[in-house]
Amino acid sequence: MIMLLNDKTLPQRIRRESLDDLDEALELEWQDLYDLDGLPTGTLDDFETRLARQRYFRELFRLQGELVKLQSWVVKSGHKVVILFEGRDAAGKGGVIKRITQRLNPRVCRVAALPAPNDREQTQWYFQRYVSHLPAAGEIVLFDRSWYNRAGVERVMGFCSDEQYEEFFRSVPEFERMLARSGIQLIKYWFSISDDEQHLRFLSRIHDPLKQWKLSPMDLESRRRWEAYTKAKEIMLERTHIPEARWWVVQADDKKRARLNCIHHLLGQIPYEDIEHPAVQLPARQRNADYVRIPTPREMLVPEVY
């Protein structure tokens, strides 16, 4: 962190972080409005930066096309998939989840991002509130954080007792093997970022009014307890890495590479294949000679400010 504070390139690095955020906002629009070989120029740093961004978009769109094929196969085969995304705050979990779900049917692929348990949930079996979010046949569920909260934030922040912590490690392998026996494929990703990179991303959020909401008091406290989180992560990976549900670590200091690498790896974990679909033909609209459309009352119209 001291090196980062003394880094004279820090303004440029924060600017690159802002460019990454701009890319996130423009991904859909750029594909729809521009040919990737003719992206608008004049606002980017240099030619190499433009090429790198073009390569990223081109590969992202290709991988998202494969995700659409995967979705069709999951529906056709009745496969059930659960994907867990864990990692430090600002590690990029939400970014890759957004890219995975961006072009998929939300009825097939949905995200479970559970809030802190309420008073009633705190008295339940620990895994109970997660079970209702598990997939039925032909569904994919992405957990943006999961039952591994107990091994991470709850342990570090003192939200669970030593007995509850140890019981979690006794139970979680049995729970995940039970999911596997029921036909659910469980894939677990840990997004790994360096101390300096997390510090940079937190600074970027502090200086961006559109992203300040992402920084909660818990996030700031987690920053202070970096080493405690590191120790908790190492114990978690060691004690819950089982053949039925192994961990995969994504190097995430470069957000764009992390997204591409994670999606590429995910596609390789599921034995999907192309599904042939019948050609879609638009039916002719029925027209009735006696139908007269009723004009919309002016007071119901949204003002056309733009």
Rank of each mutant, 00 (worst) to 15 (best):
N6F: 05
T9K: 12
T9A: 07
T9S: 02
R13H: 10
I14G: 03
I14R: 09
E17F: 11
E17V: 14
D20L: 14
L22A: 15
L26G: 07
D32M: 07
Y34W: 13
Y34G: 04
G38S: 15
Y56T: 04
F57I: 14
E59A: 04
L60Y: 03
R62P: 01
L63I: 11
Q64N: 07
E66R: 12
V68K: 12
V68Y: 07
L70C: 04
Q71G: 01
V74A: 11
V81R: 02
A90Y: 00
G92Y: 01
K98Y: 11
R103H: 14
V111C: 10
P117V: 03
D119K: 11
D119W: 04
F127H: 05
Q128E: 14
V131Q: 09
E139K: 12
L142H: 00
S146K: 09
Y148M: 08
R155V: 00
F159M: 01
Y165H: 10
E167D: 05
F169S: 01
E174N: 13
F175T: 08
M178K: 09
R181I: 06
I193K: 03
D196H: 11
P209R: 09
K211Q: 09
S216G: 08
R225Y: 12
K233R: 13
E234H: 14
E234W: 11
M236N: 04
I242Y: 06
P243A: 02
A252R: 00
E273F: 07
P278Y: 04
L282Y: 13
P283Q: 04
A289Q: 07
T296Y: 13
P303I: 06
V305R: 08
